[in-house]
Design a protein around this nucleic acid. Sequence first.
DNA 1: ATACGATTCAAACGTTCGTTTCCTACATAC
DNA 2: GTATGTAGGAAACGAACGTTTGAATCGTAT
Lengths: 227, 227
Amino acid sequence: MDLHAIKPQHETRTRILDAAEELFMKHGFEGTSMRHLTSTAGVNLAAVNYHFGSKDALIEALFRRRLDPMNIERIAALDKLEREAEGKPLAPEAIIRSFVSTSLRMIEDEQGGGRNFIRLLGRTYTDPSKHIRALIGQLYAPAMERFKVAFGRALQHMPREELTWRLHFMFGTLAYTLAATDTVQLIAGCKQEDRYDACLLEERLTSFLVAGLLGPLRCREDVRKAA
Amino acid sequence: MDLHAIKPQHETRTRILDAAEELFMKHGFEGTSMRHLTSTAGVNLAAVNYHFGSKDALIEALFRRRLDPMNIERIAALDKLEREAEGKPLAPEAIIRSFVSTSLRMIEDEQGGGRNFIRLLGRTYTDPSKHIRALIGQLYAPAMERFKVAFGRALQHMPREELTWRLHFMFGTLAYTLAATDTVQLIAGCKQEDRYDACLLEERLTSFLVAGLLGPLRCREDVRKAA
DNA sequence: ATACGATTCAAACGTTCGTTTCCTACATAC
DNA sequence: GTATGTAGGAAACGAACGTTTGAATCGTAT
């Protein structure tokens, strides 16, 4: 339990988590067998159950490892924004950026498994398993609450209900963008080169989200008339 | 092979497809076993392999049954728009509507399994399996090409590359919205009542997408400066 | 009545799944 | 030295998987 023993102590766990990110991203949770997973990680078949307890517990540990620091970072970025604004309302674009860039920067993490995780995460928002969706929702809850309040303050003229929906759409756009880093082919004709240019992607995505969030409100009559 | 024999002939197939939509949506492809599927459908375990050949072939048939008519309907709606416009460029909002409303109207299909299918479809755009994503892409290809051209004509000032990305974002927003009809809780505080009001949802989603699509372009300098 | 193709059925196929067991290896503490 | 607790490894567990088989059943045409 001494300090100089810590690294080898956790090495197996880390190898398992890294392999899990890669394989769960490639083949899904149910599509990845423990045998495939442990042999990719270069550990014994029993290692997952020894270190994590079960496959489900491994999945939970996998998301906690990345998501908790990510959301802490997001909240810190928002805190910094608000400190600098000194009480003045924040620009919606700045709030969006502080949320989005945390995810996008991880896409460029080539050597670390960040990119694998991000794609996996984007897809898991709509995972079939209620249990997994609940886990993700729970891990996101603190940051989400914080950002909802911030957007509410920045857009005081917008009805709360409308805001909730627009945040939902924004969140969905981000999730899909993260998950579909190679589904771009669906909308054929995309150049390969800038697919992973996270900086350019952040600009494109941000301006889309800002426009969507600030788009003109429709009054009830408009809605009824269109129906 | 006579006409009066057709209904019972296809009843088992239909029962299987309906049950598959429900269970694949609830538990995913790999999470749904043939035993669970066939017992839910009220048919024999061997029926799937007899009528479809394999589980994979069933998945393909499932998507073809709904997606082909949907895309035909979409293209027809676009044709009608262009006929009525008599050569004048179409309003982007009208194009968006003709794509989106086909999906959203199916959400309200309670008794038919339309809602199940739509949620399943929205999630499958980012399915782990390359094979399945390729299938979806192939089934969408004709309609997608058609809509890309229509948007290109409606937005001649927009660089093709930018347009491609915005269509990608729009498609993602729609996909997530369809898939996450109960993940709305992530952005907590949503009223239950209007969750499935497809008409209201269409208005909200359309105005978000229109705003995002038409949002201000950023010139290269803006992008660089922000980086 | 008989023959025949299409469909349904119970049972079994071999494989793979997540998990567990039990043994060994190796530290550190006494 | 011996004891002790942590980690790795080989083998096996029972259960569940997708698929196949061969016989039974049905409706229809001869």
